[in-house]
Design a protein around this nucleic acid. Structure first.
Lengths: 330, 330
DNA sequence: TTGTAGGCGTTATCAC
DNA sequence: GTGATAACGCCTACAA
């Protein structure tokens, strides 16, 4: 069912039907009503593909996330999708994974689909490969990043003060007389390196600066969290605090400590990052640094919509403040 | 950069360029090579919108989920997206929410986008409103449902034996000498009503058939799980088992029991449904009925791809078997 | 107030 | 082998 079919039935031209469909003025009320009835009757739906071709706008927005399964990202996928949907955009959510090539590939495929805007979630997209891909494939459409930034004219970034945030967490543990703290980092993303910096700074200002060396590389998973905790206990039986870059391993660490007969938080305190739902499920409930990922994402979405609406006086970067949600593990 | 631009540069016609782009035969190797170089050089990317218009196929698939945030659905969104992506399709993931109108609205919008196929996840889509919307807007494209079914010629369903699954769970508790069991249901979806039936059947065959009345309506959330558990404890202090239709409230119930000084599973056993990651985080770890939602979704995705490839001899419905993952709460 | 004609970028069907 | 030409469904000057 096309506007031509409707036009034929109504005895008018296709352009008249088009005008009615798009609520354009300059149509005799009678004609308009008649066509509207016909549209209803035939349950006509404009073909967005054809529309996109002539309007040179798909009203689709690409959303890049490495892995939507991570608890912290699912909230984002939900709320951002809702927000953009409300504004009349359709979201293309793509799980890119970690490798550079798949990120580049995803950007290429989205460009091919003529997306109107791009939203990238996570500092892992702050890298040379992605920058090149955007310069190459999407030099002219608005791009927003949550927890990251790229120095390109069409890219806006929303960041958070993670360095300070982690430093505050360390100081919180220190104020509880827990000075010997280990730091567990799952991957060297720009964001995690910021956190590590905060860790080292705060530790060096404490009574046990040698702990700045207690940095452990360990993936985000329950199994790995359990494993690395036992490893730390073995290498440093006197450990008094564990600072994680995410919640999943932290939750598992709590269990590992309890299983080893170590009271939490009396002997060892634990802090996670991201403030996911896991924190509340953990028993005792996990204290966590909220890095405002959701707020960053929503802010990015709003910035993207603003750009899409033609506002080009937006700041290239803005920064939000993280905060500590204290629960039962500190 | 269109095929016309490339054609001009190469001194050939647009059709020749199109043939090269699509790897069609019947081109002089020399011409082909020359054009290919030019394509690389200009980093030409075919416009999928225009392609979709003439090919009458968008290579996009709609995915309907009520709320991607629920732990059980995020796995699905991930794996299904990967699978369909690999097959060259782009996924339009839409969080519809519960209300009928928003489901209908989502279907309408997807139809407008000329999706090639639709995948619906969750029994909540098995309802009259959705059926009508599909008859109206998408009568001709393949539709697959995970954990649901609609009697339409273009709809295929993948189901699971939840009634038996829950009955087995009840029998498991009974075998542990826990006969007085309450059932907590968050909403009356077709799927949950199946579960309730399994509960009632198994209870009636036990030593305390009067417990078939112990059915509690309570939403999926930590808070509500905690609240309803305390309510049950108050109304039935002799309760010996709790059977939940999902994991989130079940996890919270465990905490509520422990907080009330009731040993789990010695005095009261708890079983959740869905077998989400929450089960492993729960302390003690939660026993759960795995309703194979992921397998259902993947199977639906495969069925959808099969239909898309023209296979129309697929069964209208298939059924998978659920299984109990026993952990520490039984 | 309405209709005509051209074009969006691509593919497919003919000719040559 | 290659090149016109006509779709695909819609929008938008410009004409009438």
């Amino acid at each position: 069912m096309t506007i031509y079919d409707i036009a034929k039935k109504a005895g008018v031209s296709a352009s008249t039907v088009s005008r009615v469909v798009n609520n354009k003025p300059g149509i005799k009320p009678e004609t308009r009503r008649k066509i509207q009835e016909l549209l209803k009757e035939c349950s006509y739906t404009p073909n967005e593909t054809a529309r996109g071709l002539v309007k040179r706008s798909s009203r689709m927005i690409g959303i890049l996330i490495t892995d939507i399964r991570y608890a912290h990202y699912m909230d984002i996928a939900f709320f951002v999708e809702q927000e953009l949907s409300r504004a009349g955009y359709t979201c293309l959510i793509v799980n890119t994974g970690i490798p550079d090539e798949s990120k580049v590939e995803a950007i290429h495929r989205l460009a091919q689909r003529q997306i109107d805007g791009l939203l990238m979630v996570g500092s892992t997209f702050q890298c040379a490969a992605v920058q090149e891909a955007i310069e190459q494939d999407l030099p002219d459409i608005p791009v927003a990043m949550a927890n990251g930034y790229l120095p390109l004219p069409n890219v806006k970034g929303v960041l958070v003060d993670e360095c300070n945030g982690v430093a505050e967490c360390i100081r919180l543990m220190q104020s509880r007389n827990h000075q010997k703290i280990a730091f567990i980092i799952p991957s060297s993303t720009p964001s995690n390196l910021q956190k590590q910096q905060g860790f080292e700074q705060a530790i060096r200002q404490g009574t046990h600066p040698e702990c700045a060396e207690w940095v452990y590389q360990s993936p985000t998973s329950l199994e790995d969290g359990y494993r690395v905790t036992n490893q730390i206990l073995q290498e440093h039986p006197d450990v008094e605090g564990l600072m994680f870059c995410e919640d999943e391993a932290a939750v598992s660490a709590v269990r590992a400590l309890l299983d080893a007969g170590i009271p939490v938080p009396e002997q060892v305190s634990v802090i996670g990052t991201d403030n996911t739902r896991y924190c509340e499920i953990c028993n005792p409930k996990l204290t966590a640094l909220d890095n405002m990922m959701l707020e960053m994402s929503m802010e990015s979405a709003r910035i993207l919509l603003e750009s899409l609406n033609g506002n080009n006086s937006l700041p290239a970067r803005i920064m939000l403040f993280s905060r500590i949600i204290e629960r039962e593990t500190t």
